[in-house]
Design a protein around this nucleic acid. Structure first.
Lengths: 141, 141
DNA sequence: TGACAGATGCAAATGGTTCGCAATAGCATC
DNA sequence: GATGCTATTGCGAACCATTTGCATCTGTCA
């Protein structure tokens, strides 16, 4: 089974387990999300969904995104361009490097940084619930 | 001279040098910003400005904030609560820890993390222009 | 002091996101 | 497979932070 199908199945099981109806629009949106390897915003997801089923509405896209985000199935990011962007939350945690010229998002991960963050928070008397590390950068010339 | 006055003077010089008029509303807003030690949003700044001079408008607050941000005199942050928040950009660079329960923002800085970030970007073939590190945390119980 | 470009306040526009509501469609039951 | 109840949908209107058009005002410099 492809990663895409696995993701779709995971979404489906997740909603089912929560007693949430698997409606036609939701199926379409789950499919779109499952096959996204980038960090699309709501409009982009809506466009992809409409390409599959023209009757899907933007409201439902937003509602489904919220639903999945609350259940932890996808992650919402607010990069500096204003709108929210989403990605599947399977796979391990990672941070983002945003190419300022192209808008491209590159994922990376550093255990050292993660550890340092935890240390800093601990020193201040806090436990980190989540964190956000974004590097806005330009290709080296 | 107090830090507040110094900051106000810096703002004033900065605008003057750029040939930008030092109008009454701008003076009020500069004063408000110079005396802010927290991370207020536009509404909060507007409220503080109006307390000094009731004729200042929200539009002008936004316009002045944009002006100062473009000149690098203040910094805009987009924490996860939606609206933009601002702070003076004198003093050294720092990152933020946001208390999820109170909304309080604590500043911190780690040279180690800064270095690691630069290394990671370099490995990916990038130069960091700016970055954002936010720890959303809860007080340790 | 006068003139003029830049700055202001106001209200209306924008853009992303959410909400109210009447109509529709899952899904459990018969 | 038909029925009924409720969750879900699409639509448009509402929201909220922020921006903008425009007629009016005001720094600034000659």
């Amino acid at each position: 089974m492809s990663d895409e199908k696995k993701r779709f199945e995971r979404f489906r099981q997740d909603l089912k387990a929560a007693g949430i109806r698997l409606t036609e629009p939701r199926k379409v949106i789950l499919r779109v999300l499952a096959s996204a390897s980038d960090h699309p915003d709501a409009q982009a997801l809506y466009a992809r969904a409409v390409a599959i089923d023209a009757s899907v509405s933007l409201s439902t896209v937003y509602r489904t995104l919220k639903l999945l985000e609350e259940r932890g199935a996808i992650q919402r990011h607010a990069f500096d361009d204003g709108r929210a962007r989403f990605e599947n939350s399977d796979g391990e945690h990672h941070d983002h490097l945003i190419d300022l010229d192209t808008g491209q998002v590159i994922e990376f991960r550093s255990d050292k940084i993660e550890r340092l963050q935890a240390e800093i928070a601990a020193e201040l008397g806090y436990d980190i619930i989540r964190h956000k590390l974004e590097l806005y950068a330009r290709r080296r010339s």
